Simulated assay, not measured.
Amino acid sequence: MSATGQQTTITCDQCYTDVAIPPLSHCQEAFCPKCEHELLSFRKNGHEHSLAFAVSGLFLLLLSLPFNFLIFKSNGQQHSINITDTLNVLIEQDYLSLAVITALAILIIPFIVLLGISVLSLLCIRNQRWPGLRLAYRSVNTLSQWSMAEVFMVGTLVSLIKITSLAEVSYGISFYTFIGFAICLTLALVNYDKNRLGLWLFRNRLPKPKKLTVSGASVSVQRTWALLLVAALLYIPANVLPIMHTELFGRSEPSTIVGGAISLWQSGSYPVAIVILIASVAVPVAKIAILAWLNFTVQHRFSQRRQTRVKFYRFTEAIGRWSMIDVFVVAILVGLIQLGNTISIYPGPAALAFCAVVFVTMVAAITFDSRLIWIDRKTINE
């Protein structure tokens, strides 16, 4: 059985090439012959698998909210938190924006994505097209790249390593259910093939990407430059200012991103220190540099090494959100470690600045039109 039952034509959204795709068999994938972008795949019972993982993820997400997430014990004092407590502490510390960002990234957006996948997969299996289904389809495709539950779990593990020398930490029920939720979310997205589902939704003919015009190309280039300039400026306070303050027996100790990584290295946590340095220092710089290089090449109509450039572009798309690890580390530590003058942790101004760097670079990658790598500017429609 094939994905569509008949040959179909898909326009690659990364190079605007029309590709005729024959019926696919189980585990077969179709790639664009020009830019090697994956266009379609087929797995037997793929919709059933994505539905099962999405429903399981929703159930585990709801289970992870009411119970304890982590329990912190120090000098005879104990403090436990659930995920919503973390958000409440951030709000109490006058970091409402950071609380909103965390809630959106790890709870609200993943919930919408899983709910959308559940509805789309179920109705596709039943071959029922409801009103508003196309809006749900577009919402899942747009929001999935902003879902960061798995990044939050990595940040949680990093935060635990940071505080093992300060006190004893134990895990609550929500910790394990949230891990299960993050795994189910990942598997649901792996089994979710947006083009295959789109072919069913749009009756075997996906809408073509909007044609690129001279004015559209110019706007894309200028907007990307503007966003990269903003990201570069924000990167300075994000690394110079403290990302959190640790109050230990009445004495406040500020910590920057690099300073925190150095402390981890000195304490012997070499792998974690390397992860922080890569995710929070190297990745943002690499994204800004790569996108600037790509924007420069399309602005000056370079035609060389197109395959190499598109691979770099996909790399920036894939790694962008992982820079949020340090922000989530701060959110967990602030929510967990609140024992008055004995030991407490508070967010620093760099947390919001770094958050802005991550988001602006992600938007810059979205704004950059990868078709400019492949399309000769002379052939763009006026």
Rank of each mutant, 00 (worst) to 15 (best):
M362R: 02
K378N: 15
I366T: 12
I262L: 09
N239G: 11
Q28M: 00
G348F: 09
V327N: 00
M362N: 11
N141Q: 00
A54T: 00
N45Q: 13
E150S: 13
G216D: 09
L58E: 00
L336H: 02
L157H: 05
I319P: 04
V100C: 07
T4F: 01
L120M: 02
A217M: 12
I257W: 09
T142H: 11
W322A: 06
E150A: 10
S263N: 15
I108P: 02
R43M: 05
A356G: 12
I337F: 01
K311P: 05
L264P: 11
Q78I: 04
N75W: 12
L339T: 03
I325V: 12
R321S: 14
K194R: 12
V275D: 07
A231W: 03
W130Y: 07
P237Y: 07
K210S: 15
P284Q: 05
K378V: 15
I10G: 00
W374M: 06
K210W: 05
V285A: 14
Y346A: 10
K44L: 15
T224K: 06
L264M: 13
G57E: 03
L294Q: 03
Y176R: 01
F249Q: 10
P22D: 12
P254T: 09
E29V: 12
V363P: 07
P23I: 06
V357L: 13
A52N: 10
V214D: 11
G268I: 13
I337G: 02
G250N: 05
L90W: 06
Q28R: 06
V329I: 12
S220R: 10
V358D: 07
G340Y: 15
S344I: 11
V169C: 01
A105N: 03
S64T: 08
L229N: 08
P33K: 06
Q145L: 09
R129K: 15
G340W: 14
I71N: 04
T256W: 14
T11N: 05
V190S: 13
L212W: 08
I380R: 12
L294H: 09
L58D: 00
I83F: 04
L166N: 08
A364W: 06
Q128F: 02
W293F: 10
N75G: 00
A350T: 11
S159G: 08
A52Q: 14
P349H: 06
N381P: 00
S121L: 13
Y176S: 10
A261R: 09
S165D: 13
N191S: 13
Q6P: 00
R251L: 13
V272E: 01
I288H: 09
T316L: 05
A226P: 00
A30D: 03
V360M: 08
P22S: 04
N75F: 12
I125E: 06
